[in-house]
Amino acid sequence: MLTLRSLLRPTRRVYAHCDIPCGIYDPEQARIEAESCLRIIEKHDASDDKLFRARCIHVKEERAELVKHHLDVLWHDYFKPEHLEKHPGIHETFWKATKQASKVKQTMDVAAAKELLLMIDSVDEMWKATGGPEKTRVSGRPA
């Protein structure tokens, strides 16, 4: 028998889709990995242990790759075209910062690692200017 219930039964599902509905996007993630790179380079330079130095190089390359990944996620997924209108420098900033991360991956240059931190800080400024902390951070984080 035809009932109201059978009449209203959906035949398929449609998606008001969002890739990450509660997206957490935070430049701090990239910053922490970049700080690791800097510290590892310093530890590498201060050591005479061949094995330790080899491990430093290996781990630093992993961390630098993570910096690139976290920057990419911010670039592709957090920043939207409407942000670009107000902050036309977004693409240039990310392009330079990810290139700098490559440089830190390839070299043992302390200055390059410090420069990368400054570049991540300029990403952080744009993130804050677009309301990033309010939009993407879970409240209740210790100051």
């Binding site: 039964r9 035949t11 449609v14 008001a16 969002c18």
Partner: peptide
């Protein structure tokens, strides 16, 4: 209601769908 039911049954012109997600 009968016409709607028939059309929904046919599924070609009218259909009932369920929404997932919160982007709307």
């Amino acid at each position: 209601a009968a016409v709607t039911a028939a059309a929904v049954a046919a599924g070609r012109w009218l259909d009932i769908v369920a929404v997932s997600g919160r982007s709307m």
